[in-house]
Write a protein that binds this DNA or RNA. Sequence first.
DNA 1: TTAGTTGCAAACGCTTTGCCGAAAA
DNA 2: TTTTCGGCAAAGCGTTTGCAACTAA
Lengths: 129, 129
Amino acid sequence: MSSKRMTKQRKTVLEKLKNTRSHPTASELYWEVRKEIPQVSLGTIYRNLNVLTELGEIQEININNKVKRYDGNPEKHYHFFCQDCGRVYDLDGDYQKDLDKKFEKNNQHKITHHFLDFYGTCRNCLKDS
Amino acid sequence: MSSKRMTKQRKTVLEKLKNTRSHPTASELYWEVRKEIPQVSLGTIYRNLNVLTELGEIQEININNKVKRYDGNPEKHYHFFCQDCGRVYDLDGDYQKDLDKKFEKNNQHKITHHFLDFYGTCRNCLKDS
DNA sequence: TTAGTTGCAAACGCTTTGCCGAAAA
DNA sequence: TTTTCGGCAAAGCGTTTGCAACTAA
């Protein structure tokens, strides 16, 4: 059985992620962490993001098989992806638990959860057009 | 303006995809197409899948940033991903247009569509456990 | 002390691309 | 004939991994 250590690197990755509302990529996080730990490596960022995800401290965001993004908020919620600027935003609104039941017809399969991502144009990009 | 040609390769990719209920990867499709065009290359499969997607003849399925899968049915519908066997199934049930409105609060952004993927255990895997 | 972690660099897996000859239209 | 397309092989890109040194507990 393997216990996890809270290293300076792991702590910094977690802090950076908890302190932003954006949903950075591993590479973006790498440059942030480098401000404090200049010799950190990208491999370490990836390893820690995976560990923190397993621990349930953070979650991955997978939009369209593009680069993975990371969310410091591990609670279930939905995301909005702006097709103009590419940014990913959190959406207000409840997790729709009833969807799982709705699509679990005749008990042929067991649904445990779902992912729901919205696409469109964000407020900023609407202004510009 | 570029018109698209219906080559033997493109036609075969499209046929194979229309004639299966599975959601194959590019590589799986490659081996299928090779049965009829032994000298076909993987690059050609990828290029044609991209063209056919742009044309709206097929659609991509992106599950968890894993390998891309392809669906011969271009209509909006939802998928179920079995976490035990890894297979991807179509789900019966309507596209929930109302979700877009529900999460478009205060008109801060414009939602055009969404993707909704369900996770769980499929009927076959439930039997085995 | 010792198991988990890091930095480094190489490897990996999927997908795209440049080149040039082939073949639709 | 014109222009798109295919085969091939190399490159691209995000992510993972093997290894030896390091460090949290």
